[in-house]
Every structure is written in structure tokens, then in C-alpha cells.
Write a protein that binds this DNA or RNA. Structure first.
Lengths: 210, 210
DNA sequence: TAGATTGTTAATCGATTAACAATC
DNA sequence: TAGATTGTTAATCGATTAACAATC
């Protein structure tokens, strides 16, 4: 937080977090920028530059404490703060996320799900109640969730995002294969676009590039 | 293909493809770098630089033909080539991808699925046969799929990736929340890490940044 | 022709890498 | 102390933006 942290660094922070957590699970307590860099495919220099964005945490001659680093990164990313979320669209993907994804690991609590299918409305999935999608606005105005997860068909993405924004949502996690950015540009959107990812893989295969 | 295309450009190509396809569906046949840039949140200059990586396609005074651009990008990304894939792990996520994701739109044909659950082995999901995971190596050696999709539990990710690489897989589409890059660095890996994405959103929310 | 917009070169900006003194 | 590794500055590299002549 001391210095300005660039987008490029922010995008790497989750990877550091994942790798450091893995190291911690293996019982590693200290690591050098060189070792960590090798593990992640970064230069030692870059690792040190990145970590220095949020204050020197290393010890000259020894390296960085794994635990301290994880805590630091968690703080920067806001993983240690309690946040709430709702999910809209309980098809296969929505269900997959509700059943398998650990919101808790990132400090999120999934409070409610919404769908239009009468068969699921009123039920509970992984302990989360499913409501009628027509009640989304009402619910959000009352409970003020922080994040909306969009796992619904693309054609409903914009109107739903619009409702969420109206209700003061703080961020949108967008799984529909369309860009929301510009229409609602005061609300941060994080996209998970399967299709774009597979297109990049298609390119990499063709070129034999890594 | 004429000039070297940088990683940054490649990452933008799928977005151009998506936006141009949307425009085409709306009946737009020509677009200027300025308009397209505004739509996507890029400068006109950047759009022109990007397109010029693979040969000038615009017409001075008029703009770019939407169709020609889509074709060009499809060619660069290799979307027009027929590719095959297998998916390993038919939990909620695997099933979601099999049922909802259009491999065909990206030129892929999903040929087989693998799982360890006796209840699904021998069945068919969205027209794709499900085989016993123990037969993965045998299948791949015989059919030589281009891409392996990993939607299985993290702890099996590495051994499975290892088998796929042994069998000459050309690329891995990795949905497990772990990095495969370095262990198999001759095979391109494209990661879809939900957790990393949500962490970035968590950061954006905290900072109020877009 | 006049207006618009590209293709392309030059200028700027930012991110990565290298180097090294500070210090544990 | 000697060895190792950080913190940090300087150098390099690459990507984005600006500018403008070419031309449809």
C-alpha cells in the first residue's frame, strides 16, 4: 500500500499467494527470491521488485518469510476482509461453482443464488438458498452484497448487471462470454472467459510456442 | 504471420474476435479503429498497431471490413483448423463445460471424457463417451488428441498432465487451481484459475479501482 | 476534390532486468 | 568474519500513444 502497485504486479499477486501457500503446506518457512522465481518462471529481480511494492519484507542474507509474505499478500488483495456474494444463474456452471469453489478461501461468503427455474427455486445448494430471479433487486437492496457472480445465459447478462449496479454492487465476477466493462465503468468487472482462453491455447498449439 | 506478434497482442486477439463477431451479428460490415477502440476500451492507435501485425487490412478513408478481420483473426488463432480434445474429470465443472461450452465455435471437437466414477463410465454426456480414467494413456496413444482439458481434483492434476505429455499432447487447458507450466515446459498450458480471478476482483473492490 | 481514416514512424511511457552497495 | 541475499538504483527493453503523410 505504501507505493503505487501496478496492474502487472496485482495480476501476479494471486500466483505468489498460491505458490507460497503450497510451500507453506510443504513446511517451508523461508524462501529466497531466486528460488521462488525459479518455481514460478520469474526472475529473482522481478520477485524482489514486486515484493518491494508493498514494503521490504525480506531479510538480507536469508530471504523472505513464507508466512509473512502470505499475510501481506492476503492483506493487499483484501482476502482477510469478510465479503459477501450472490450468484445469478444456476445452470451447470453455477452449480459447479457453488458445489466446488471455495469462496471462503478468498474471504467471501456466498449468501444467495437466483434462477428462473421453478424446479430449483426454494431449494438449497451447498447450504445456499435459491431464490426467484425476479426477486434479485429486492434482495440486493435489502442485503447489499459486495459481489455478483454472473453464470447465466449471455443474453441476460447486461440486464442483470444493470440491476446489480443499481443496487450498489461493488464488483461483478463475469462468467458470460461477453464484455461488460464499458457499460458499467464505475463497477469493477473481472472476467472469466473460457472461450478467449481456449482461443489462446489454439494459437499456442499452432505455433508450438510456450 | 508476416511480422512477429507479441504476447500482448495475442491476448487481445480473442477479444477482437468476440467484439467483431457481435458487430457482424448486428449487421455491421465496416468499422473504424476509432469506433472499435471505443467499444473495447482501447485507443485507435493501438487497434491499428495490432491489426498491422498481421498485414494491413483496412482501407484508408473507410475503415476495416468486419468479415475480413474475423477471418484473419480466426486464421491467426487457428480457429479454422480442426482440432480434437479429451476431458479428464467429470465432476460439476467438467459436466458444465461438456454441456454448455461450444468447443465447435473454436474449431475443437471433444472426442472423449475420462473419470474414475463407475456410475458415469460407459455413459454419454452431450454425445461424448465417458471412459474409465485408467484407459487414458491407452486412448491417447491410439487417438492422439490435440488438447487435454483438466477438470479433475487438483491432486491428480500433475500425474494426469504427465500421462498426456507422454502421449504427445499438444496443449493443456488447465482448470485446476495449480500451476503446471514449469514441470512440462515444452507443452503449452492455458490456465483458467477461478481463485486467482476472484482474488483480483477482491483487490479491485477494496481499492475502488476499475 | 475534400474528408476521413489508414499505415507507419517517432516519442513516450512503463515494466523488466541487471548491477551493486547495504546488511543480515 | 565471510557468504548470501536483500533493497534499490540504473539500464534495457518492449509496449503504448501520438503524429502525420499516404491514400481511398
Amino acid at each position: 500500500m505504501e507505493k503505487k502497485v501496478s496492474q502487472a504486479v496485482i495480476r501476479r499477486l494471486p500466483r505468489y499467494h498460491t505458490h507460497l501457500s503450497e510451500l507453506k503446506a510443504m513446511g517451508v518457512t523461508k524462501i529466497s527470491s531466486k528460488e521462488l522465481g525459479e518455481r514460478m518462471g520469474l526472475t529473482a529481480s522481478q520477485v524482489r521488485q514486486d515484493f518491494n511494492c508493498f514494503g521490504g519484507f525480506g531479510q538480507q542474507g536469508y530471504g523472505y518469510p513464507v508466512d509473512g509474505l502470505i499475510e501481506s499478500i492476503s492483506f493487499i488483495l483484501g482476502l482477510d476482509r469478510e465479503k459477501t456474494a450472490v450468484i445469478v444463474g444456476i445452470g451447470n456452471l453455477g452449480r459447479a461453482i457453488m458445489n466446488n469453489f471455495s469462496f471462503a478461501e478468498n474471504g467471501f461468503k456466498l449468501k444467495a443464488a437466483f434462477d428462473t427455474d421453478k424446479a430449483v427455486i426454494g431449494t438449497t445448494i451447498s447450504g445456499v438458498p435459491v431464490y426467484d430471479a425476479s426477486r434479485l433487486r429486492e434482495y440486493c437492496l435489502e442485503h447489499r452484497p459486495d459481489v455478483g457472480v454472473l453464470t447465466l445465459p449471455q443474453k441476460y447478462a447486461h440486464e442483470t448487471a444493470s440491476i446489480l449496479c443499481d443496487c450498489g454492487i461493488k464488483g461483478i465476477w463475469n462468467f458470460t462470454n461477453t464484455d461488460l466493462h464499458l457499460e458499467f465503468d464505475t463497477v469493477p468487472v473481472e472476467n472469466v472467459h473460457f472461450s478467449e482462453s481456449l482461443m489462446v491455447l489454439s494459437y499456442k498449439i499452432g505455433m508450438g510456442e510456450v
